[in-house]
């Protein structure tokens, strides 16, 4: 038990060391790749707070990711406040959207919940797409400056290496907060809802209120991920709120293993590497993704980390 906990800690520290040294270790293009893995890993991990921990499958998480992306892009374009203030505002904006959508959605569960979140997610996409005066329609919002992180901190985050470090710090902090949430008393209640929401309500848990709380926290961190993603791409486009964007954290989480805290991060890494590799041969990479997903759902429902776990268990 403790041996395993220690092994985990060493692995985590080694991983952090590699990530910290990444710009020296890896070729230039890999800095971009790792930045994207970190951002989408955070997106997937915040999705998994709802899916893996609370037992609710959301198919509309791009709504919060997209809200974060647009709030960040618009603030940078129109007001150019310090970058960390932009991120905070974007995360809060996404949390507010999550509060509204969640208020409707947590009334239902399982497939009903999945459909509702999908439909509301598409509503956000439609709004972003149609509200041309504000969002520029399908052209998106581009041409905004990247401001200093805080007033007086003259770091140029337009430099990919600096942006990578900013992302690494924020994602690491967010991951730590999310992890603390999952092992907290609040997190225990969420896990009880995943296991058996009826028993939970007969243990005194006001089920909807906790589901909504999880929904909003999940939306908040998804918004933060979106707010990191738009400046990283130098543009916010409606596709960032589209349901195909919602599908990504679902796929990444299943790939890595929803039962594991780091599953979504691993899944994001494997997902983006696979995409890199397969799209160098063919445009139709979603086809292969579908085949992989079908295989995982039928034969490996616990994902890659589940496989790894079984392999470890089999050896010791």
């Amino acid at each position: 038990m403790t041996g395993r906990g220690a092994a985990r800690r060493v692995t985590l520290l080694a991983l952090l060391a590699v990530l910290a040294a990444w710009p020296w270790l890896a070729p230039y293009f890999a800095i971009f790749l790792m930045t994207e893995i970190l951002i989408l890993g955070l997106f997937a991990a915040s999705f998994n707070l709802l899916f893996g921990y609370t037992g609710l499958l959301s198919f509309g998480h791009a709504a919060y990711f997209g809200t974060g992306a647009y709030v960040a892009a618009l603030l940078l374009r129109d007001m150019a406040p310090p970058f960390l203030a932009v991120l905070a505002a974007a995360a809060v904006g996404a949390a507010v959207v999550a509060l509204v959508i969640g208020w409707f959605s947590v009334r239902l569960t399982e497939v009903y919940f999945a459909m509702l979140t999908l439909a509301f997610g598409m509503m956000v996409y439609a709004l972003v797409h149609q509200w041309r005066g504000l969002t520029g329609g399908s052209d998106g919002v581009a041409g905004f400056p990247l401001t200093a992180p805080l007033p007086g901190v003259a770091v140029n985050i337009a430099d990919p290496v600096n942006y990578y470090y900013l992302t690494l710090i924020l994602v690491a902090v967010s991951a730590y907060v999310l992890h603390r949430i999952t092992v907290s008393p609040f997190g225990l209640i969420l896990r009880s809802l995943r296991e058996n929401s009826e028993r939970a309500s007969f243990a005194g848990v006001p089920v909807r209120r906790y589901r909504l709380a999880a929904f909003v926290v999940s939306g908040l961190f998804s918004g933060l991920a979106g707010a990191l993603f738009a400046p990283f791409n130098r543009i916010a486009v409606p596709e960032m709120a589209h349901w195909t964007q919602s599908a990504e954290p679902v796929l990444m989480t299943i790939l890595g293993g929803s039962q594991y805290f780091f599953g979504p991060f691993l899944g994001a890494g494997v997902f983006l590497l696979l995409r890199q590799w397969i799209t160098s041969y063919t445009q139709e990479w979603m086809f292969f993704l579908g085949v992989i997903l079908a295989f995982l759902v039928v034969f490996l429902p616990r994902g890659l980390l589940g496989l790894f776990d079984r392999w470890l268990g089999g050896r010791s």
Partner: peptide
Amino acid sequence: VIRQGKGTRWWRRA
């Protein structure tokens, strides 16, 4: 957790 009113504690480890 519910009975002791600790459901909103999200930082301390259970």
